[in-house]
Design a protein around this nucleic acid. Structure first.
Lengths: 228, 228, 228, 228
DNA sequence: TATGAATGAGTATTCATTCAT
DNA sequence: GATGAATGAATACTCATTCAT
């Protein structure tokens, strides 16, 4: 049963891993700090959700329960720290991804294909970790805010690049076009990968076809003339 | 904390309300059976998730806990029955919706607009109940299967109608086109409404714009020529 | 260490056993309800304070932990119920005691002796249970209020009887005289018995002498003329 | 909940501050030693009991936890050292007090009034620190012994002075008279000040009246003839 | 059938004490 | 000596499920 209970932590704004915890900077402490985050992440991926006990984290991470509370005020805070760490990793990968695409793109269609494919594969590679994060984002605003930030940053990056093809857009409000195009791509991929949906569902349909069609949709949408 | 615990029930296939329970057919029993389901649904909507106790259900539904276990093998089964009942309701509404659209549509663009709008509003009207369902679908295959069924049925219905405009499609594999177009619409709307996402997220962006752009995307996608 | 933490219960007013709990009226439930109160009282007397675990109560009372929570909202409430039950017992005994003294008293000195002796023995007989109660009264207002009530009632009863000898009082404000005389008797006896003091302390000094001197003090005080 | 746990320390006899600890005699060490005691005392007064953590002591006293354990074998020992220090302070004040009274007293009644008043005010001024001490004295014999010592010393001092008026005593056993008179005064004041009773209770009744009546009681008791 | 009292396994959190540096 | 990070035992409370009536 999902024991949801609105998270009690006061801090409902965006957190970095450091902010959600007392992050030691070096040595032995740092090592055990890493072990707890890693253990928690591992358990999270394994179970597909937040439903692990701190005793499990202690055992897997070879850390004492007390140590966990030395770094985090609560289990919630530990979870948030794990999320922040994962999202930071994704963010860095997104940056790298956008840089690569930057160099390749030729036509609007090419760009769409390249972008969708790269983004799809990136999300896919992270899907096991993302699932539990999205799961919690459902009721924890501080997490969904983090996810939103990440998406918005990517939207802006994609926008910058898509706008190179702005002359080919069919309608005037370019920002809206790009934003909605990105949204559809992101939402469809996320859902398809079972992020916020069951793992089994993820393999429904044909991954390659979906990617191809999303690219086509994207380009067609951007080019589409407004309702006359 | 999300006390998820992989559902223990053996039955992992698709269930109807009747299959998940020992559904009495008439009289006094039937009435208390209804009260259980209704109470559980009410608590589910209220809390936005599965996090209610059977004691609460007993109190709200004016049923004894024992009675619940007389009908359901576990709390999980009760929840699944509630889900099934809600999805059946949605299913019926979808049928009515498709019938209405059938009569109105003129051009492919008109149809897309009409369909997206009607479906969007339908999903929106059910979003408070759908959220907890989708929430659980994340880790309960028997629920996500139900949702998938519902979507597939709608896909087929939409397909039948969209195929009227098949002559205007830009690519040959019509089934795939329609299926993917529907998928993008559904996924985007679902995500937008915060089904399986946080309620706050639901109000991001502009609902009317999203609907309009989804319709445009749909038509443009269907018309789009294949990669030459 | 004394983990004191102001009691969280909302109800800071005087409680009866029934008010602090969901007291079943009969049968099996009633029996296990009694067993938990008795077990808790036993553990309280044994340890001299509130420091017993609910697991111990469950074991000693042959009750499940869940059952305890079926009757009480918290461990605090269980403790308060025990206190209320004990204080009710004492109250009844006080009534009986006053009635007996009523019949015996001859002179003011006789009355003082009789009263001090009877009250002293009553307090002494309850001292093992009273100690933990007084201990907690230190920081739990709802308990100290109960104790105060009990004392005030006794003060009034004593007052009524002492006033028979009012003509012999040395000063005019009879209510104050009686009230303070009683206070000194009560405080001295309580302290002497180690109620709110260590058990070992209780055997300091000579019990019979103290009782005798308190009686003398009481009569002398009541007869004493004001500062001229 | 009062986590009392009979004190584990082997030493159940009377301790001075030095005996309960490894008290450094000078310099840097001495300073941090003082800081620990002062911090603990501050926290004790603040919370009204022993319920502070060593981590708090370390923070407030700007001492490391390790340092504390370098001086004390346990938290219990630290607490006892604080108590001893406070009681020593009180003791010194009592000496000063008795000296002053010595010079003033005229009649037995005068002496009683002066003594009760001075002692009452002394206890009152120490009541915030005394409360937690008395609280613990309830179950820690080594503390209650200390308190007893202090009281006995005062009894002897008072005795010496009261015996000046011995010719006016109504009964022969002067030591007993003085001892019991003092006891009643002490117990009543202590109780009244809420030492070992709830703070709220402390403001019951009228302080000035109580002092006045205690003085009257004292003189009347000493003068009272024995039961003929 | 129906009831709802009883059960007890399961878990986050605290804090005195230890010990590697 | 001094530090403070690490330890882990201990405990109140919840709630799905059972079962005597």
């Amino acid at each position: 049963m999902s024991r949801v209970s609105t998270p009690k932590s006061k801090n409902d704004s965006i957190l970095t891993t450091a902010e959600a915890s007392r992050e030691p900077q070096q040595g032995r402490s740092r090592a055990s700090y890493e072990r707890m985050l890693t253990a928690a992440e591992k358990l999270m991926v394994k179970g597909g959700n937040d439903d692990f006990t701190l005793t499990e984290v202690a055992k897997v991470g070879k850390v004492s329960i007390g140590s966990i509370y030395l770094r985090f005020d609560s289990k919630d805070d530990l979870i948030r720290a794990v999320h922040a760490r994962v999202l930071a990793r994704i963010d860095a990968d997104q940056d790298r991804m956008m840089q690569k695409i930057d160099e390749q793109a030729a036509t609007l269609e090419d760009f769409a294909r390249a972008f969708v494919d790269a983004y799809a594969e990136l999300l896919k590679s992270y899907s096991p970790v993302l699932r539990p994060i999205m799961f919690r984002a459902i009721y924890d605003e501080s997490i969904s805010a983090l996810g939103r930030d990440s998406a918005e940053k990517l939207t802006r990056q994609a926008e910058t690049q898509m706008l190179r093809y702005a002359s080919e857009f069919g309608r005037p409000d370019h920002a809206r076009l790009v934003s909605n195009a990105f949204r559809m791509i992101y939402y469809t991929l996320a859902r398809f990968l079972g992020l916020g949906s069951s793992p089994e569902a993820a393999h429904q349909g044909n991954w390659e076809e979906i990617k191809e069609d999303l690219a086509i949709m994207c380009a067609a949408f951007l080019r589409a003339p407004g309702p006359s």
